[in-house]
Computed example of a mutant assay.
Amino acid sequence: MMKKLTAAIATVSTLGFANMAHAESFDTAIGEIDASMTATLASDYIWRGQSQTNGAGAVQTSLDFAHESGIYIGAWGSNVAAEDFGGASIELDYYVGYGGAITDDITYDVSWATYTFPQGIDAVDEILASVDLYGFTLGAKYAYDPSSALYTYVGYGFELPYDIGLGLHYGNTDTKDPVGTSTANLEYNDWAITLGKTALGLDWALMYSDTDLGNDCTEIYVDRDSCDSNVTLSVAKSF
């Protein structure tokens, strides 16, 4: 299964959904392939508790292909705040990975991703791995080029009445090398609570997020408010 398929609401790094329930399946000479494209409008782009748009809105899109074997590839894009990314106003991410199931209640996912910022800061390469078991998600992301940073997280998602999903998320970032234009070696925590529901053919989400960065936020972003607590609303449509 695709990474976007197996990720719980609580563990997404951005506020948006790539809902593979709407995927189209195609029979090919090499087996069945699922394809999905998602468009998202969000009041902010939140990454590990931090705004990537200085509190402004975000337009995001994704395109994913998954083979029946569990192998998948995809791309994702969003606008970002140019002043925080070396002049880049767009982030374009590309990833490839493999996901599978051990039992009906235990699934796993491993992938490699590169995050690019055209005409801005250098691309960041990352290795990702996660396990979903009985509603919990345990995961780690290791960025190795050009910086060295480890992100570990735990999430828990479950269903409330009226088909409302509730996701809880807690993560830790341990940065050993400079991030963006920063010279700081930062370690901090982030957390989030997300409510999600499908209605009118759209995926809606409301998320509260925060970090314990405090004044260290200015080591990363021009705008100090980028690391303040956020309440973010998004709506997504999958095709």
Rank of each mutant, 00 (worst) to 15 (best):
V110S: 11
D177R: 10
L200G: 05
E68R: 08
A7P: 00
Y153W: 12
Y153F: 15
A7L: 14
K237Y: 15
L15C: 03
L202I: 04
I106H: 10
A58F: 04
T38H: 13
N79P: 07
N19P: 08
Y188H: 13
H169L: 02
D177W: 07
D27F: 01
R224H: 05
L200W: 14
D122Q: 13
F65G: 04
M207C: 07
D216I: 03
S13A: 10
F17G: 01
G139F: 05
V110F: 14
L5G: 12
E32S: 14
G77F: 02
Y170W: 15
G180H: 06
L5R: 11
S130L: 12
S51Q: 08
T103D: 05
V59D: 03
S62M: 06
Y153R: 10
Y142V: 03
V235A: 09
F17A: 12
S62H: 07
D132R: 13
D105S: 14
P161M: 02
D125Y: 08
G165P: 06
L92R: 12
K197I: 11
D132F: 09
L41C: 03
S13M: 11
T11N: 15
L41N: 06
G99A: 15
A21M: 09
K4P: 00
G16K: 07
V235R: 05
I193G: 05
A123S: 15
A8P: 13
D203W: 09
S182K: 02
K3M: 10
Y170Q: 09
